[in-house]
């Protein structure tokens, strides 16, 4: 084999291998790869009932209830199609508020998602306070689905 032919075969081999790997990876994406479940998936029973997982969604406006004298809170998470009740005992992060996107880790117990960790998910938009105020006037819930 001449060196030139060898180089050609090497390049063809690399292209073929990388191409095939890409095809197989694309095939993988046909399947559900998600780790996350949104409230709709939980409501339709797609989320595991016996195992902890992460759920991401928006805290429904007006749903936050605190139990007096304890750290126990409950609220509902929504993706604007379905809602899931969540209960949590512990300190909530600063960014936690109604209408804000959060991620909770825990498991389902009798239709209620019992969280052992709540993380505020903040979006990629940075806004000065006065702009935010005027935006709120113009359109309800300021957060988005990121």
């Amino acid at each position: 084999m001449t060196p030139r032919r060898k180089r050609l075969y090497t390049v063809l081999g690399i292209l073929g291998g990388v191409g095939l790997a890409t095809l197989v990876a694309v095939k993988a994406f046909d399947n559900n790869l998600s780790y996350f479940y949104d409230p709709s998936q939980v409501a339709t029973g797609k989320a595991p009932g016996d195992k902890s997982f992460r759920i991401g969604g928006m805290v429904t406006q007006g749903s936050l209830k605190r139990t007096p004298g304890s750290l126990e809170v409950s609220f509902t998470l929504t993706d604007f199609a379905n809602t899931v009740p969540v209960s949590y005992t512990g300190l909530l992060p600063d960014l936690f508020r109604e209408g804000q996107g959060i991620i909770a880790h825990g498991r389902l117990q009798g239709g209620v998602f019992v969280a052992d960790e709540v993380l505020a998910k903040h979006d990629e938009k940075y806004t000065p306070p006065e702009v935010a105020k005027s935006m709120k006037k113009m359109q309800p819930p300021a957060g988005d689905k990121t």
Partner: peptide
């Protein structure tokens, strides 16, 4: 110079 973020 930059204003503070409304949330953070």
């Amino acid at each position: 110079m930059a204003p503070a973020d409304y949330q953070q």
